[in-house]
C-alpha cells in the first residue's frame, strides 16, 4: 500500500468526512451530521465551480496573443463569458433590488444562443450515430458486434410506426428486448459498476488513493 504521510491533514479530513457520510447511509442516528456535511459539500462544489470558471478564463487569457492561431476563438469565448456574466449580474441586481423576476435577459441569451447550439449539437450526433452503427461490423466483426448491430435495427424498427406500415410484431419484440434481455444485461452491468464504485470509494476512504493533492 502506497501510504504517504506528507498530507496527513487532508488525508485525515477526507477519511473522517467520508466515514461520517458513509455511516450516515446506514446508521440513522447520524443522518443529521451526514446532511450537514453534504450541505457543506454543496456549497464547496459551488465554490469549486467558480474556481473552475476562473480557471477557464485564465486558460483562455493565456491563449490570447499573436502567436496563437486560436487566440481569436479564446477572445470570443472570453467576451461571450464576460458579457453573459455582466448581463446576468444586472439581472440579478434587478431581481434582488427591484423585484423584477426571472432573469429575462439571461434567459433570452440562454434560449437563443445556448439552447439552439446544444440541440444542434445533439442533432448532429444522429449522423455520427448512424455512421458508427453502420461501421461497427467493419471495426469488430464478432458475435458481440453482430448482436449489437441487429438489436439496434430491431429496436429502431420496433419504434417505427406509421399506420399503414406498422409492424405490431416488431413492437412486441422491441418491447420484450427492452424489458427482458436488455434489463438482464443492464443489471449485470450496474452490479459490476457498483462493485467498481465501492472499491474506488473505499480506496479513497482508506487513504490509499488521494487525488486531493495529497
Amino acid at each position: 500500500m502506497n501510504i504517504k504521510l506528507n498530507a496527513p491533514v487532508s488525508t485525515a479530513i477526507a477519511i473522517g468526512v467520508g466515514i461520517i457520510v458513509l455511516a450516515g447511509y446506514f446508521i440513522p442516528s447520524i443522518t443529521n451530521i451526514r446532511f450537514a456535511l453534504l450541505r457543506t459539500g454543496l456549497v464547496l462544489a459551488a465554490v469549486a465551480l467558480l474556481v473552475g470558471i476562473i480557471n477557464l478564463l485564465t486558460v483562455h487569457f493565456k491563449k490570447l496573443g499573436p502567436d496563437n492561431e486560436n487566440s481569436g476563438y479564446s477572445l470570443i469565448l472570453i467576451i461571450a463569458l464576460l458579457l453573459t456574466l455582466v448581463i446576468g449580474i444586472i439581472d440579478m441586481v434587478q431581481s434582488y433590488m427591484f423585484g423584477q423576476s426571472n432573469f429575462q435577459m439571461t434567459n433570452w441569451i440562454f434560449t437563443n444562443i445556448q439552447l439552439p447550439i446544444e440541440t444542434s449539437l445533439l442533432a448532429v450526433t444522429a449522423v455520427s450515430l448512424t455512421y458508427a452503427a453502420a461501421s461497427i461490423l467493419r471495426k469488430r466483426m464478432d458475435l458481440f458486434s453482430i448482436t449489437f448491430f441487429f438489436v439496434i435495427l430491431l429496436v429502431l424498427l420496433g419504434s417505427f410506426s406509421i399506420p399503414p406500415a406498422t409492424l405490431p410484431f416488431l413492437h412486441i419484440i422491441r418491447d420484450w428486448i427492452v424489458r427482458v434481455p436488455a434489463l438482464g444485461g443492464a443489471r449485470g452491468l450496474l452490479l459490476g459498476i457498483a462493485l467498481g464504485t465501492i472499491t474506488t470509494g473505499i480506496r479513497i476512504l482508506m487513504g490509499t488513493d488521494r487525488p486531493y493533492g495529497g
Binding site: M1, N2, G188, L189, G192, I193, L195, G196, T197, T199, T200, I202, R203, M206, T208, D209
Partner: peptide, 22 residues
C-alpha cells in the same frame, strides 16, 4: 465496458491495493 473502467489502476500498475481491489 462496465466496471472495466474501475480497474484502470490495476491494469496500469498503480499498485497492490488496486490489484487487491479487483
Amino acid at each position: 465496458i462496465g466496471e472495466e473502467l474501475y480497474a484502470g489502476g490495476a491494469y496500469l500498475g498503480a499498485g497492490k491495493i488496486h490489484l487487491a481491489s479487483i
